[in-house]
Amino acid sequence: MNITSFLIYCVIVTFTPGPTNIAILSMAHHVKMKEVFRYVWGVTAVFGVLLSASVMLNSALAAVMPQILAFMQIVGCIYMLYLAYQVYKMDISGDSAQQAATFLNGFLMQFVNPKVWLFTMTVIPSYVMPYYKSSFVLSIFVLVITIVAFLALATWAIFGMVFKSFLQKHLKVTNIVLALLLVYSAIEVSGIVEFVKR
């Protein structure tokens, strides 16, 4: 097993900008760190759940993956557009950010994120299962990937807190830019780009 390739893949997928990371950055400059981390814990929990499901149901999930992803593309696109609207209308009071910064919202965001489904359902079967079959070893890999995901999310939350005063000083512009990035993510997730390229 190429551990370096495995870790690079995990870091790139979890640390690079995506709808979840953008949402966390947006929340971090509106609410307290404790509240942002409720959302982060919800997101992290889904990583663990989906990775565990990937290990336990690998062959069954591989058979239905195209149908799951097609459904997730539609639901994920709609949810990301809704999230973009929420980010756009957040004000300095942070009321809408407080409503968004919950464990449940973080949990649901990941469940409708096709990027997360694709990553969690392929990383262990592709990188780990060809070399390791032991339940204990597979559990260790699930834990390692979940920790990497948590560290990525925490990094985005801390980044938002560190630059809080700057982001609040340019609040409207920040909200518009973050909302547009979420709209872009929604378009990417929807599959429209691939459809147009055909």
Rank of each mutant, 00 (worst) to 15 (best):
V49L: 06
T120K: 00
I8E: 00
C10H: 03
I24K: 00
V11N: 05
P114S: 06
V40P: 00
Q98E: 15
H29N: 13
V75L: 09
F37V: 14
H29K: 15
V11Q: 05
A100L: 14
A28I: 13
A28T: 12
G42L: 09
A63T: 13
S96R: 02
I8H: 00
T102C: 06
L104Q: 10
D91I: 03
I22M: 15
Q110E: 12
V87T: 10
P17L: 14
P130I: 12
I92F: 14
G106T: 11
T122H: 00
Q67I: 09
Y85C: 02
Y9L: 02
A70R: 03
Y132H: 12
Q98W: 09
V55C: 12
V112L: 07
V43T: 13
W117E: 11
P66E: 15
T16K: 01
M27L: 15
F107H: 02
T44A: 09
T102G: 07
M56R: 12
Y79W: 12
W117Q: 08
L51C: 11
Q86M: 04
I24W: 02
K32Q: 13
A45N: 05
F103Q: 01
W41P: 00
I92A: 15
V13F: 00
R38E: 15
F107K: 00
L69G: 06
V75S: 06
I68G: 03
Y79R: 02
Y85L: 02
Q99W: 13
T102H: 03
L69K: 05
A28G: 14
L118K: 03
A62H: 09
V116C: 13
V64G: 07
D95K: 02
N58W: 03
A100F: 13
S59E: 11
V36N: 05
S26C: 11
Y79M: 06
T14A: 13
V11W: 04
L25A: 13
Q99V: 05
S26G: 14
V128F: 08
A84Y: 02
G18V: 03
G42Q: 06
S93L: 14
N21T: 01
L57I: 06
V11M: 11
S126T: 14
F107E: 08
I24F: 04
L118N: 10
K32N: 13
Q99H: 07
L104D: 10
N105T: 13
Y79D: 03
I74D: 07
P130D: 15
L118T: 14
V116R: 01
N58K: 12
Q110V: 09
F71L: 10
P125I: 04
G76S: 06
W41D: 04
Y127E: 15
Y9C: 04
L57M: 12
M65P: 10
L118W: 11
G42A: 11
I24Y: 03
P17K: 10
G18D: 15
L25D: 07
